[in-house]
């Protein structure tokens, strides 16, 4: 059976089509979910794509967390549903308290788009289990508010529990604390990542194919997961 992976569209979502394409290339069936509908349509996993949901007004992700789809999603995620938040999706997961900390304005105050090397630190999550620990991958980063911040205790805890999923190496593009690019929840099913793996899934349009691993990981995870 083909896994069905939901991709949520909020008003202002921009990379939803890209996320759906990545899901398809990874071998799963993308299912488009609408922010205004609470129904998750029985999907096996969900991607919250990048963009500027609700124009990033008030605060990135702050309005999106109150969308009807999020109410269902938060419960499902707590119940183990794999959820990947990319960029704006990461911000939404933090606002929804599925992940700790927050994403703030890049330290240099500019939007920045570049091809970024990441080191995979946690290869046990639902979204990174096809990588090797310590593996370096090349993924585009593009954000204006991607600077990850949390208090020292939280950062220490994330590191102690192995919940830092990826770090920026060879240059930190936004000033994130401890070079954090991606984190996960204690159960490892919810991952927030600032760079864009969905933009590194085709040789023709991406800097590498490394992004595909995030999407194939969730398929592997689903095969192994109890029904």
């Amino acid at each position: 059976m083909t896994a069905r992976v939901g991709v949520v569209t909020f008003p202002g979502s921009l990379d939803d089509g890209d996320a759906a394409r990545a899901v398809r290339i990874a071998g799963a069936e993308p299912v488009r979910l609408w922010h205004g509908e609470a129904d998750l349509r029985g999907v096996d996993a969900v991607v919250l794509p990048g963009g500027f949901s609700y124009g990033d007004y008030l605060r990135c992700g702050a309005i999106a967390r109150f969308a009807p789809v999020m109410e269902t999603l938060v419960d499902a995620a707590r119940g183990g549903l794999p959820v990947l938040g990319i960029c704006n999706g990461f911000q939404i997961l933090c606002e929804a308290h599925l992940l700790p900390g927050a994403l703030t304005r890049n330290q240099h105050l500019h939007f920045r788009n570049r091809d970024q090397v990441l080191r995979i630190e946690a290869a046990g999550t639902a979204w990174t289990n096809t990588f090797q620990p310590g593996q370096e991958v090349l993924i585009p980063v593009k954000n204006g508010e991607g600077c990850y911040v949390a208090d020292a205790a939280t950062l220490d805890q994330l590191e102690a529990e192995g919940r830092v999923v990826a770090r920026y190496v060879r240059g930190n593009p936004n000033g994130s604390q401890r070079d954090i690019a991606a984190i996960t929840n204690p159960a490892g099913n919810v991952v927030g990542i600032m760079p864009h793996p969905e933009h590194a899934v085709e040789a023709l349009t991406g800097p590498s194919l490394d992004g595909l691993g995030f999407f194939t990981s969730v398929l592997k995870h689903l095969v192994g997961a109890p029904a």
Binding site: R114, D115, Q116, V117, Q132, Q135, E136, V137, L138, R170, G171, A203, L204, G206, P207, S208, L209, D210
Partner: peptide, 16 residues
């Protein structure tokens, strides 16, 4: 490209 990177893309710009 990083060691473990799939150097599949003909476009692959060198790294950062």
């Amino acid at each position: 490209a990083p060691a473990a990177t799939t150097a599949a893309s003909a476009l692959t710009p060198a790294v950062d």
